[in-house]
C-alpha cells in the first residue's frame, strides 16, 4: 500500500500543509498549556519528535501482527513505553533539562497527534515512509510550539528565548492559558491566509 508522496514531500507535509497544530488542530492541550515560552515549546517539541519517530517505527514494523480490534490499546502501550524510556534517559543523561520539563514529558502519552499518525499512517505504510512521516509531523509540531511560544513569550513577558528584549512586560494576559487559544487561532488564520495567497498566485500563473 504505497503512497505517491516522495520522502521530502512527506516531511514537508507535516511541517506546512498538514501541520499538526495549525492545520490538523490536534494536540491543542499542550499547544495551549505549554507554549508560554520558546524554550518549553522547543523542549516539548523535541521530546514529541522522538516519541513520534520511535512509536511510528515500532508500529510500522509490527503492523502485520497487530490484531485490528486492539489497535488503539497497542498504540497506547507503544507510546507509553517510549515515553517512559525517554523520561528515564533524560533524567539520567540531561538532569538540567529534565528538571524543567520533567512534568511535561509524561503527558506525551496522551497527545492525540501521535496516536493519530499511528492510526492514519504507520499501520498501513512501509517502515521508511513512516519514518519520514513521523519526522515531518514531529518537526511540524515543534515548529508550531516554537512559533506560539515566541509570540506569547514576546508579548507576555517581553523576552525572546529567555533574554529580556523589551525590558518590560507588554501584556501579562498572553502568559495565561486562555491567551493560548487566541494565539493559536490567530496563527491558524495567518497560515491559512498565506496558503490562500500562495494558491491564488499559482492559479494566476497557470
Amino acid at each position: 500500500m504505497a503512497n505517491e508522496l516522495s520522502k521530502g514531500q512527506l516531511v514537508a507535509r507535516g511541517l506546512l500543509s498538514q501541520n499538526p497544530v495549525f492545520k490538523l488542530a490536534l494536540s491543542m492541550c499542550p499547544a495551549v498549556g505549554m507554549s508560554t515560552s520558546i524554550k518549553t515549546g522547543l523542549m516539548l517539541g523535541v521530546a514529541v519528535l522522538f516519541v513520534q519517530v520511535f512509536s511510528s517505527l515500532t508500529i510500522s514494523l509490527f503492523k502485520n501482527w497487530i490484531h485490528p480490534r486492539i489497535r488503539i490499546p497497542t498504540y497506547t502501550l507503544t507510546i507509553a513505553t517510549w515515553v517512559t524510556v525517554i523520561d528515564l534517559v533524560l533524567s539520567a543523561a540531561f538532569p538540567a533539562a529534565y528538571a524543567e520539563m520533567g512534568i511535561f514529558i509524561k503527558l506525551i502519552v496522551a497527545f492525540a497527534i501521535i496516536t493519530m499518525r499511528l492510526e492514519m499512517f504507520a499501520c498501513k505504510e512501509t517502515v521508511s515512509d513512516s519514518l519520514f512521516d513521523a519526522v515531518g509531523m514531529g518537526l511540524g509540531f515543534m515548529f508550531g510550539m516554537v512559533t506560539i511560544g515566541f509570540v506569547r513569550e514576546l508579548l507576555g513577558s517581553g523576552m525572546v528565548f529567555g533574554y529580556d528584549l523589551l525590558g518590560f512586560k507588554p501584556l501579562l494576559f498572553f502568559i495565561l492559558p486562555c491567551a493560548g487559544f487566541f494565539v493559536v487561532g490567530l496563527m491558524m488564520a495567518f497560515f491559512n491566509w498565506i496558503e490562500a495567497k500562495y494558491r491564488d498566485a499559482r492559479e494566476q500563473k497557470s
Partner: peptide, 28 residues
C-alpha cells in the same frame, strides 16, 4: 488471539521499560 497478542505486547513493553530503568537507574 487478542489475549495472547496483548499479553505479548505488555511483556515486550515491560521488558523494554525494565531494561531502560536498569540502564539509567544508577545515573539518575
Amino acid at each position: 488471539s487478542i489475549v495472547i497478542r496483548l499479553t505479548v505486547t505488555c511483556l515486550l513493553a515491560g521488558l523494554i521499560m525494565g531494561w531502560a530503568f536498569i540502564l539509567t537507574h544508577e545515573g539518575k
